[in-house]
Computed example of a mutant assay.
Amino acid sequence: MGAADIVPGVSGGTIAFITGIYFRLLEAISSVPEAVVRHLVRGQFRAFWDACDGTFLVCLLAGILTSILTLASVIGTALEQYPILVWSFFFGLILASVWHVSRQIRRVRPALVVPLLAGTVLAWWITTLTASQVSPSPLIFFGAGALAICAMILPGISGSFILVILGMYAQVLNAIQSFELLHLALFAAGCLLGLLSIARVITWAFQHFHDGVLALLIGFMIGALNKVWPWKETLSWRTNSSGEQVPLTEISISPFSFTELGGQDSQILAALVCAAGGFILVLLIEWGGQRRKREAC
């Protein structure tokens, strides 16, 4: 989840869903406020830990933070040197995730087309937004964390891409790499507030509108494919905080147009292999999850 959240366009929520821990994660997060009131304030630490599935949350958080701290530079370098291959891998991963999540729908019916289309259009629209430029302040770090985590927990909506739109992606990465404790603490506080809020909303929605919510999430993932499409044409550029020229507005194009316009190798064969690798990875994760369930039974 941490590795996925680093990449703008890929959601950690998607990884949670295909690994089979999504609903457990929502339940654990949703139970934290009640567990604090009922147990923690009374000094019942063991009861609090059990009520909010503390071991699960701590292990998951440790994995996410470890991945972010160790892979932030690696993934950033890979995106710069091998953008087509990296985006192809995540394209295949999200495409397989669409298939995986669609299998969780209990009863397919025509009414599900409405949330499916709504999610697709919304996510597609988000991927077309251009990045803004803001002056980072403590309040901005806090607000960015709250908004980004709400997107991260939703399959198909990329929290890191929300940071790109807000103009905070580079600022947060710099804070991680430079270990700026104040900014990181404020960002984490915003994440905590947003996470506790959105988890309860999603849990309630799943309990009352299971198939409709899944259709909406599938739409999110389909719309997000526009962001991870490997071949792009840059329409305009901007100067980032490091003084580097980075794309401001991009559109998806065919690999053949990519070669014609830029004179660069579209790497179609290698891209297909990477996309297939991402797709197969999801299948292997699903197979492993099903096998673990059978063994538990």
Rank of each mutant, 00 (worst) to 15 (best):
G2I: 04
A3T: 06
A3H: 01
A4Y: 04
P8G: 13
G9M: 03
V10M: 06
V10D: 04
G13R: 06
I15G: 02
I18C: 01
G20Y: 09
I21D: 13
I21E: 09
Y22S: 12
F23N: 13
L26G: 00
E27Y: 11
V32K: 02
V32M: 08
P33H: 00
V37S: 02
R42S: 08
G43D: 07
Q44D: 11
D50V: 06
A51E: 11
A51H: 08
A51V: 01
G54Y: 12
T55P: 03
L57E: 11
A62E: 06
S67W: 03
T70Q: 06
A72L: 07
S73M: 00
G76H: 12
G76T: 08
G76A: 10
A78F: 10
Q81Y: 03
F89C: 08
L95W: 11
S97F: 05
V98H: 08
V101R: 00
S102G: 03
S102C: 10
Q104V: 04
R106W: 02
R106H: 10
V108L: 14
R109H: 15
L112I: 11
V114N: 12
V114W: 06
A118G: 02
G119A: 11
G119L: 04
T120V: 04
A123T: 10
W125T: 15
I126A: 01
T127K: 08
T127E: 06
T127A: 08
S132G: 15
S132T: 14
Q133A: 07
Q133H: 14
P136A: 02
P136M: 05
L139D: 09
G143D: 04
G143V: 02
A144T: 10
A146S: 12
A146I: 01
A146E: 07
A148N: 03
C150K: 06
P155S: 13
P155W: 14
G156Q: 09
I157R: 04
F161K: 08
I162V: 15
I162S: 05
L163F: 10
V164Y: 10
V164D: 13
I165H: 14
G167S: 02
G167A: 06
Y169N: 12
Q171C: 05
L173Q: 08
A175E: 09
F179S: 13
F179M: 07
L181K: 13
L182P: 00
L184M: 06
A185G: 15
L186Q: 07
L186T: 11
A189L: 11
L192T: 10
L195W: 02
L195Y: 01
S197P: 08
A199M: 10
A199L: 05
I202P: 02
T203G: 05
F206V: 00
Q207S: 14
H208Q: 12
V213D: 10
V213M: 14
G219A: 10
M221H: 11
I222C: 03
G223F: 01
G223H: 03
A224W: 10
L225H: 03
N226P: 08
K232M: 08
W237H: 07
T239M: 11
S241W: 00
S242A: 15
Q245W: 13
P247T: 07
P247V: 05
L248Q: 08
I253H: 07
P255Q: 01
F256H: 15
F256Q: 15
T259K: 15
L261F: 03
Q264H: 09
D265S: 14
Q267C: 02
L269E: 09
L269K: 03
L269I: 13
L269S: 12
L272T: 07
G278P: 12
L283G: 15
Q290W: 09
R292Y: 11
C297I: 05
C297P: 04
